[in-house]
Simulated scan of single mutants.
Amino acid sequence: MNTYLEVSEHIDWRAPAVFSKARNLAEGLSDPEEIARACFEFVRDEIKHSWDYKMNPVTCKASDALAHKTGYCYAKSHLLAALLRANNIPAGLCYQRLTITNDKSPFCLHGLNAVYLEKFGWYRLDARGNKEGVSAQFCPPIEKLAYSISTQGEADLPEIWAQPHPAIIKALSLKSYQEVADNLPDIEILPIYK
């Protein structure tokens, strides 16, 4: 479980602002589930999704997403993992492979999280940000993710990553939200996920 508590370049929970925000969100709470809910709702509701709001700069590190109050789903998942880890709650990164438009190829990865809750085990949650047609909620043990798998070629990838997938880091090295949107990361999936 220690790997899901580690600090890293992109999940930089020891950055003073991230650590302070994590402690602030947990203030007065003792139940890890309630702390996880507070962290989730903060990232979902207060950090704007870069594409929805047409916002720059492109962020990748948790501390940058917090500082600029924006990020694609990937950066938002890095921030949520950092806030949870700063509160000693194991958290990882998960991915879905989704269609980009019109329920057909091309596909892209979508970033979300898994948190380890003692009562439920690993629980996936999606702080992407709600909007019309998207309503992600925190209600363990029931998953209420932003997107469901509905089209051939889409997949829920089962891995829980301790660190971001390299394709995500590459995409988030681009300079503008539009460049990222034009180059959303995708990966080949094994036939068992299709």
Rank of each mutant, 00 (worst) to 15 (best):
F40E: 00
A86Y: 12
L83H: 05
A75M: 04
K76Y: 10
R37T: 12
E118T: 13
K54V: 11
F42S: 07
L117R: 12
Y72S: 00
P141Y: 10
P141V: 03
W122I: 03
V43L: 09
Y95P: 12
F107Q: 04
L66T: 09
K69L: 13
A38S: 11
K104V: 15
I35R: 09
S135Y: 13
T99D: 08
E46Q: 10
H78I: 09
L93I: 05
S135I: 09
K61Y: 00
C139S: 15
T101K: 15
F42T: 11
P140Y: 11
R124A: 04
Y74E: 02
D31L: 05
D31Q: 10
L125S: 04
E33K: 12
G92C: 01
H110I: 03
Y123M: 01
E118S: 09
L80F: 02
T70E: 02
N87H: 07
G111N: 10
A62G: 13
N113L: 06
K54Y: 15
L79F: 02
F138W: 12
F107R: 00
H49C: 04
A75E: 08
S77H: 04
S105G: 11
A62V: 05
D45F: 01
G129F: 06
D126R: 05
C139D: 14
S135C: 09
A67I: 03
M55K: 14
D31N: 13
I47L: 01
Q96S: 05
G92E: 02
I35H: 04
C94Y: 01
H68K: 13
K76E: 15
G121V: 02
T59W: 03
T101Q: 11
H78S: 12
I47Y: 00
E132H: 14
Q96A: 01
C39I: 03
H110N: 04
L80N: 06
I47K: 00
K119R: 15
T99S: 08
L98Y: 14
K119T: 12
R44L: 01
F120K: 07
P106H: 13
Y95F: 09
A114V: 00
F138G: 06
Y53M: 06
A65P: 05
P57Y: 09
N56T: 15
A127L: 02
D31M: 07
A136N: 00
R97F: 06
V58N: 13
E132D: 14
L109Q: 02
L98A: 04
D45Q: 00
E46L: 00
